[in-house]
């Protein structure tokens, strides 16, 4: 779980940067190739997606893209294809006590055709759950605390420099008896039983609280009209102004979180949102309660929607749910020594 958490903590920008090092370091100028000089490209010089408007605007590129590993789409490990909406509803028919099924238009990020004529049915157990704001608070609190480590080191008197020795003679002055000015009684003295080692605040929220946190967050965001489902994250232009204008014209709020299944995002939206701090990209495995409420608007692709729904419904309906929930509340302990095996 800790591995997963660490992975989820990485923002997609960091992920992209890590990926960008080998990807864009291999942009070589044709002239400089002979002199063996590597030119590290900026993100502004990303090769435009084929067939878009940008490729026609910038026909002459100085750099040639020749990273075989990333260029070869077939060799790249892609996320598993999520089940379709019909499969999800067939596999998990909504319970009788669940709310009314929600519907959402399938939209696009293309300004020429911002809305398709497809209406998506959203599972009521995920999108119409009764939200508990205290559960959301505990989720956010957990996300902020579990990775927090205090490195405070408070020195005891013996670990401090000795100072001046006795501040005054033991007898005859009428003052209190002191041997050192590093005593804990003194201002700027040492500290008894102070913090000496790194202190971890790691703890795990119980499984059901984490699961319900995601479900309640999605329900709240949808109830406040802050969730938009798009076909994919392709935009026609890598220009930051395009995505800013688009979101303003659509009436979405300023800060927006784009979520896709794949963690290698399309080049245009990566370039467009790179310099804008309130537009962020995130793979679906990194989706979390804090990020959803840190951003005003949540934009999900259809495949991301399917992935989230199928995973959350699996968590709600898994047969070993009680075991998982109980085990997640226990502190893991080393196995008991069993004398019978010796």
């Amino acid at each position: 779980m800790f591995q997963i958490c660490r992975r989820a903590c990485q923002t997609p920008r960091n992920v992209l940067r890590l990926l960008a090092v080998p990807r864009y370091a291999s942009f070589k100028a044709p002239d400089a190739a002979a002199s063996n000089e590597t030119v590290v490209s900026d993100l502004d010089q990303i090769p435009a997606e084929p067939g878009t408007a940008a490729s026609s605007e910038r026909p002459s590129r100085r750099f040639v893209f020749h990273d075989e590993d990333l260029d070869n789409e077939s060799s790249r490990i892609r996320p598993p294809v999520p089940p379709s909406r019909e499969t999800i509803f067939r596999q998990y028919p909504p319970e009788s006590l669940a709310g009314v099924t929600r519907y959402a238009w399938l939209e696009t990020l293309d300004a020429s055709e911002p809305r398709t004529d497809r209406l998506l049915a959203l599972h009521p157990e995920i999108w119409a759950a009764r939200p508990r704001l205290d559960n959301l608070f505990h989720n956010v609190e957990w996300q902020l605390w579990y990775k927090d480590v205090w490195y405070t080191h408070e020195r005891n008197p013996k670990q401090m420099p000795p100072g001046i020795g006795r501040p005054w003679p033991q007898k005859g002055t009428g003052r209190a008896r002191h041997r050192t000015i590093r005593s804990p009684l003194w201002v700027d003295g040492g500290r008894c039983h102070g913090a000496q080692n790194p202190r971890s605040h790691f703890y795990m929220l119980p499984y059901m609280n984490r699961l319900n946190g995601l479900i309640h967050a999605l329900s709240v965001k949808f109830a406040q009209d802050d969730v938009h489902i798009v076909r994919d994250l392709h935009i026609p232009s890598p220009d930051p102004e395009y995505i800013e204008d688009f979101i303003e014209n659509q009436g979405w709020s300023l800060s927006t979180l784009f979520v896709d299944t794949d963690d290698i995002m399309p080049a245009n939206i990566t370039a467009a949102t790179e310099k804008i701090n309130h537009f962020n990209l995130m793979p679906v495995y990194g989706l979390n309660v804090h990020s959803m409420f840190y951003h005003s608007t949540l934009v999900l692709t259809e495949s991301a929607l399917n992935t989230i729904e199928s995973k959350l419904l699996f968590g709600l309906h898994r047969t070993d749910r009680t075991d998982v929930a109980i085990n997640s509340m226990r502190t893991p302990r080393p196995p008991k020594f069993d004398y019978r095996t010796y």
């Binding site: 709310g99 009764r130 709240v220 109830a223 406040q224 409420f293 840190y294 005003s296």
Partner: peptide, 12 residues
């Protein structure tokens, strides 16, 4: 959920 539509946006 109906009340949340008329309340301020839930945030961190």
């Amino acid at each position: 959920l109906a009340m949340l539509r008329h309340l301020p946006r839930v945030s961190v």
